[in-house]
């Protein structure tokens, strides 16, 4: 633990983190002020340790004056843990409960919010391809972190992860082999262009940006957990506004709209897998 913020100074930590987030917002426009405090504290303390800076005010000083250093810090605060077909049961339920609805549309607009490095977007594209729907889809995959979007566009991933992904894919009800969708290159795999043909990767910040399209389906999994309640409500409002009537919202397996302001604006399609439908009225 950081020795500066001991028993005596511990109250200062939260005060200084508040100032840091305010400074970052004013200088760079990225707004982390309503992120979970416990999450931010953890990331800030870890950044202090790595960079050998003693206090959060010292960190703020450096962040304000060094844009490259800020890029690294931005990465600290963004959520970059993802995998293909994460939570396979979710994808099974999606096939069973959401795909039949999507089939009724002639053209399907999808927003994958907080797509990070793209693994879950390609999982979705594979599933849509296998259901014969991908050609009818337009997928907007967004994140606030340009660095992860570059990785997502490249569609190149570590080969060491593939075994796990294959297993997830099978458990998720995949009808082919995952290797049908990628080419191996040395220690990496590259997913085929046919999957990304219908995907647009774009910069969008859920905290500071507004509605950009009307869509039939939104996936935003394991993003809301990092937000404080008011911000969760704000983002759920943004999703509600973006969805067509009876549009579908998919959240992470431990994320809930219960107790939120939008609880009665959605009905559950699969409560356990957190798949919801926008109410007509």
């Amino acid at each position: 633990m950081n020795s500066y913020y001991d028993d005596q100074n511990s109250r200062l930590l939260d005060i200084e983190i508040g100032l840091l987030l305010e400074g970052v917002y004013q200088k760079y426009g990225y707004d982390f002020r309503e992120y979970s405090k416990a999450h931010v504290r953890r990331r800030v303390l870890s950044r202090l340790k790595i960079s050998g800076i003693e206090t959060v005010i010292g960190l703020l000083d450096r962040l304000l004056r060094d844009a490259d250093f800020f890029r690294g810090f931005l990465n600290d605060l963004s959520i970059n843990v993802t995998e293909m077909f994460r939570d396979p049961e979710f994808y099974r339920s999606f096939r069973e409960n959401v795909i039949p609805k999507l089939r009724t549309y002639t053209f399907i607009k999808i927003w994958h919010a907080g797509c990070s490095t793209g693994e879950e977007v390609y999982s979705l594209a594979i599933l849509l391809q296998e259901e014969g729907l991908l050609d009818r889809c337009q997928v907007y995959a967004t994140d606030f972190n340009g660095k992860v979007l570059d990785i997502a566009r490249e569609a190149v991933y570590q080969k060491s992860e593939i075994e796990q992904y294959e297993q997830n894919y099978r458990q998720a009800g995949g009808t082919r082999k995952l290797s049908d969708y990628y080419q191996s290159l040395y220690g990496s795999v590259m997913f085929k262009k046919e999957l990304s043909a219908r995907i647009v990767f774009a910069d969008h910040n859920l905290v500071t940006d507004s509605v950009f399209a009307e869509v039939n389906l939104i996936l935003c999994r394991n993003v809301l957990i990092y937000f404080e309640k008011d911000l969760q409500n704000k983002v759920l409002g943004l999703f509600h506004e973006s969805l067509t009537p009876a549009g579908v919202l998919c959240l992470g397996s431990k994320e809930s709209i219960r107790f939120s302001k939008y609880e009665d604006r959605f009905t559950a399609i699969d409560e356990k897998q957190r798949i919801f439908k926008k109410r007509l009225i």
Partner: peptide, 30 residues
């Protein structure tokens, strides 16, 4: 699993710590 300043729980899907998720360190520190 983490505790917030308002004594409510929050969750995180961050990378494993000590090969563990949930990690005891993460809960205890928060």
């Amino acid at each position: 699993l983490l505790i917030e300043n308002n004594f409510c729980f929050s969750l995180s899907a961050d990378e494993k710590l000590n090969f563990s998720r949930p990690s005891i360190d993460v809960l205890f520190e928060s």
